[in-house]
Nucleic acid binder design. Structure first.
Lengths: 185, 185
DNA sequence: CGCTAAGCGGCACTCGGTGCCACCCGCCAG
DNA sequence: CTGGCGGGTGGCACCGAGTGCCGCTTAGCG
């Protein structure tokens, strides 16, 4: 097992057992069988052990957006999100643990939203293209941020239901995008 | 001038002059004429010097939401935001500096979004009440987060226009809420 | 005049994060 | 076989944010 993956696994274990703040980097490193200095070579920050692959999604999202036809950004974003967030059943428990940590530890939630900024602007750019307006236009910017906000709500709702599976996630995504498409009035 | 206010003023000065990360708490404290330990008695974190009063808005927002009639959450939220975000001309430069810092320094942006969580849930609760649904319902949650997302976009757009005044801010708020009300499809 | 209570701030400590450098290893050229 | 060479490693010293402790000053009051 590669070092990074082992560290990640061990870290989620320790965080779940004794809490994020209560676990020092020294513990993570020695539990992973490496030196503290080496730990920081694999993860720039203690926070990044938890977030890790969450933003690999960005490249995938951009790609998926590019493949969607039509000039309805909502439909495109919905399809892109559904295609990017396809999880195998075996991945769900780890996903749950990650989401739980991100919701509980404010610092992690904060760091996660920074990651989402890339998504927001990618979505804004895509919407601007389909609407044929400037990407800096307020409507496009609001769209990008609102979509990410909706996705945060989806993950939060999914995490709150202990037995929700991958299909349930898809259903929630659909519901959220319906709301965005139709408006709130 | 009270200590907290003086520290805040001096801090914004120093951050603008030499950057956020490049300014240590020691500098802030001695520039404000207090000891380092005292600084942390007024601000739990270096970050909070910048964000400071930003979340005093929460209590005001909740109050303003409570005063809005009708069962359209978008209209209520729009009115509440307009009433809370009434800035005097003299406050605008300070607001600009704050917004600039929050946009530029990722750590500040992150911390700010944590503050917004209170707004998100307040808005969700209000919407749930007007729609007569559960506050935990996905639609209400998406609404709360989308509204805050839209407000972030508004502040960002306003900040990007160097000569925008308080009226321009109101116009942007209206535009953003129109988008949320009508939907994006 | 003495007592008390509250704000102040020095000191020492923990922990996250970084720069530097010595070390160990496998690899390749001579 | 040997002598360099390069990458991964991790120890060490350092910085800055944040915290607990405690002694000091000072203002207020009986």
């Amino acid at each position: 097992m590669p070092v990074a993956q082992r560290l990640e696994h061990v870290a989620l274990e320790l965080f779940a057992a004794q809490g994020f703040d209560e676990t020092t980097v020294d513990e993570l490193a020695s539990a992973g069988g490496v030196g503290r200095r080496t730990f920081f070579r694999y993860f720039p920050t203690k926070l990044d052990v938890v977030l890790g692959e969450l933003d690999e999604g960005l490249a995938g999202l951009v790609h998926a957006l590019g493949e969607q036809p039509g000039n309805d950004p909502v439909a495109a974003a919905r399809a892109a999100f559904l295609s990017v967030n396809r999880y195998a059943d075996a991945e769900l428990p780890a996903l749950r643990r990650r989401l739980g940590l991100i919701e509980d530890v404010p610092e992690l939630a904060a760091r996660a939203t920074v990651r989402y900024r890339g998504w927001e602007s990618a979505l804004a750019v895509d919407a601007a293209r389909r609407w044929d307006v400037d990407a800096a236009s307020l409507r496009a910017q609001v769209f990008g941020r609102a979509v990410v906000a909706a996705m945060r709500a989806v993950f939060s709702a999914w995490h709150a239901r202990p037995e929700a599976d991958a299909d349930a996630l898809g259903a929630l995504v659909d519901e959220a995008f319906d709301a965005l498409a139709r408006g709130f009035s």
